[in-house]
Design a protein around this nucleic acid. Structure first.
Lengths: 207, 207
DNA sequence: ACCTGAACACCGTTCAAGT
DNA sequence: ACCTGAACACCGTTCAAGT
């Protein structure tokens, strides 16, 4: 940036934007370091001056996508509507980028930031979930929505397009979010005052 | 198999078994055609005589894993317990093979066979779900459990191992299955006689 | 019928060199 | 500081050839 120095032909923003375009049109598997560089008209290795490696690039890309998440906040509309709204916004944000949400769920923070993870736990505590279950509830909701994004990853990018079964991707995610919210509400109400819950599923485990 | 012919040094079963060992120890990303062949002491291309390509091999591997699924059947224990038992068995079967369940959910049949998909839909119809929602309900359950397997894919193979948050993978999946079942029960009861349900989530969609 | 060997078109990434 | 070029160690896969 000192005067007299010629400006760089590349910025990190350019790289992230090119990566987003690639994922949008070819899916996450279409995102290669070489393709990003080609898209920008530079040598395959030029990109490495701005990002550490491919994992770093995907992290930057996901950060960009997360900017359009509707925040998870406990307002006057109640925790159920707020949660549903937040989950839909996650799904809508990632749906344009096939494979990205599926990849994020495998990372330690389940596709959100460290801070997003903590805020979610607080949200569920404030919503009346016992402290021991706030984390489980939040993880459950994130796991479902990213699972749904995994399903969508291959079935085509347009969520409004009718599919073989006559249902749209939207129908699935709407039903799913309703079920997630209803399930959490039921578990919350069955658990007054934070007494330890007895899991029906636990008794069914083999081994 | 005609007399006088020397027996082949390789069988498809050997290949599938070697592939399972590789996934078990190195995850699905550790499954390469070359690694499978090396494991069996043959040339990288020998494997191609028995399987069409890598996708075919993964399908065969998944078929093998599915053999240990507890069938989804509507018995006297009721649909809720049967569903929970089935989901747990899916999770237990795939959990040994990191990344496999996550991969399967992206296929058109959500990690089960075509027949398994149809049987599941019938199961939910028999359980009293309206025909229009049986498919949504089944897809929801499968999506969650495979989402959970995606989360487990990176966090280590031993489901009993305590993690940073003090919770085990088992705690998450038990809570999740309980929530899935509770959510489905609630939606089913809110929908008497198969009248079209109004989705709260639908109203929250932007665009 | 069953397997080998060489080769092709890809990857991500390192490293030295240029301007 | 910023980018190029060559190279390495991997992939999946094709194709011709051997026994």
């Amino acid at each position: 940036m000192s005067p007299g120095r010629r400006p760089p032909s590349l910025t990190r923003e350019d790289i992230v934007a090119a990566a987003l375009r690639l994922i949008e049109h070819r899916g996450l598997s279409g995102l290669t370091m070489r393709a990003v560089s080609a898209e920008l008209g530079v040598t395959p290795m030029a990109t490495y001056y701005y990002v550490d490696d491919k994992e770093h690039l995907v992290r930057l890309v996901a950060e960009e996508v997360r900017r359009s998440f509707v925040p998870l906040r406990l307002g006057e509309e109640g925790w159920e509507a707020s949660l549903a709204r937040h989950l839909i916004s996650i799904w809508e944000a990632y749906a344009r980028y096939p494979g990205l949400g599926a990849y994020m769920i495998e990372l330690p923070t389940l596709g959100v930031t460290e801070e997003g993870l903590r805020e979610g736990i607080r949200f569920f505590e404030d919503a009346g979930f016992p402290a021991s279950e706030a984390r489980l509830a939040w993880s459950f909701a994130l796991t479902y929505i990213h699972g749904r994004l995994s399903v969508d990853a291959r079935s085509g990018r347009n969520p409004e397009a009718p599919r073989l079964d006559g249902l749209r991707s939207q129908d699935y995610v709407e039903f799913g979010i309703d079920a997630v919210v209803a399930g959490l509400r039921t578990l919350r109400e069955a658990d007054p005052g934070g007494s330890p819950r007895t899991s029906p599923a636990r008794r069914l485990r083999t081994g």
